[in-house]
């Protein structure tokens, strides 16, 4: 089990003794709920029984299914939109409680998403009134989850879902502000960098943002991060995304220069060397010239160093070295 400390055999035996009555209760409750399910019991009592069982075991997906069936086939049927709205609020409160204890259980997130999809129109003629309220709350709820664990990918996925389905869309650029906040509080948060790459791609694609200008800002940001902690791999991956396929020679040269300077200050930096090899290879591939032998020699020297300081991946460096030498041989 993830992160659960091992117990001694004696402790296990003691625990089993204590668990006896719990097991009996769980089995009895499970049988009762499954029997109701078989009998297509969509009553409020059945609904309460699922609450009880899910509280003990929120991963029991069959019971979540049954619960949704009770709602759609039973409780919703005789209900006004107001009452449905009430029921769904209850579902959100319950799943929030569960998520605080089990932030990584797929089935709970899944149920929450189902609730959002079933918000009735209203109140009254304001068809999106409830939806707006729910969505505003969801954004806050998911931020809370990400404050507790900034890398929880369930929460990030859910966040993207919420953002994409808002009744009144928020400007996408506000997600740049949010990810910046997450990055400023811990720039090892690759989830935030990832999200940023998605948001930028979308904004550039829609013509809402100038890719050149915004990339300059990002380069500045990444430069600050790489000088602060050159061992953090997330920033180097993001940097690689910013440079892309290397179709801007001037930019490649500039970034190579920046990294060279950092390497001078931090001569044992694996990521400086690794990135220099990558960008120099881009130059070799995209801009063949008479400088090539020099570049090849540079790369080979860096790769030899990398084999030493990062020996776990030495075969990769060796493969790249052979590949580069074959380019060098070609020119």
């Amino acid at each position: 089990m993830h992160g659960v400390k091992r117990q001694t055999q004696q402790a296990i035996a003691d625990r089993k003794q204590r668990e006896k009555s719990k097991i009996e209760g769980l089995l009895k409750l499970t049988d009762a709920v499954l029997a109701r399910k078989k009998g297509q019991d969509f009553s409020a009592e059945a609904f309460d029984a699922t609450t009880q069982l899910l509280t003990v075991n929120p991963e029991f997906y069959t019971i979540w299914n049954y619960r949704r069936n009770i709602l759609t086939n039973g409780l919703f049927r005789e209900s006004t939109p107001e009452a449905i709205n009430e029921l769904l609020s209850g579902e959100l409160a319950l799943t929030m409680k569960f998520l605080q204890a089990h932030p990584k259980v797929y089935w709970i997130w899944n149920h929450r998403q189902w609730c959002l999809q079933n918000v009735p129109p209203g109140p009254g003629s304001d068809v999106d009134g409830w939806k707006k309220k729910y969505w505003a709350f969801e954004l806050q709820a998911v931020e809370k989850m990400l404050n507790a664990d900034a890398r929880n990918f369930h929460a990030w996925n859910y966040r993207r879902y919420v953002l994409a389905n808002m009744p009144v869309p928020r400007p996408e650029s506000s997600e740049l502000t949010y990810t910046m906040k997450k990055i400023e509080s811990n720039f090892s948060n690759f989830s935030a960098w990832h999200q940023r790459s998605k948001v930028y791609t979308s904004l550039w694609h829609q013509g809402k943002l100038d890719p050149i200008k915004s990339k300059e800002k990002e380069f500045e940001l990444v430069r600050n991060a790489m000088y602060t902690d050159p061992d953090d791999q997330s920033i180097w991956m993001y940097h690689r995304w910013l440079v892309g396929l290397g179709h801007d020679k001037e930019l490649l040269d500039r970034e190579i220069g920046v990294i060279h300077e950092l390497l001078e200050e931090q001569p044992d930096s694996k990521w400086c060397m690794e990135s220099l090899v990558h960008y120099k290879r881009l130059i070799l591939t995209n801009y063949p010239s008479n400088q090539d032998p020099e570049l090849v020699a540079d790369c080979v020297r860096l790769l030899d160093q990398l084999k030493d300081i990062d020996s776990a991946r030495r075969h990769r460096y060796e493969e790249i070295r052979q590949n580069i030498e074959s380019i060098g041989g070609r020119s």
Binding site: M1, K16, E19, K20, L26, N57, T62
Partner: peptide, 13 residues
């Protein structure tokens, strides 16, 4: 391990 609560809590797996 039917005397282990965890066994029953993982029936869904």
């Amino acid at each position: 391990s039917k005397d282990d609560l965890a066994y029953h809590l993982t029936a869904h797996l």
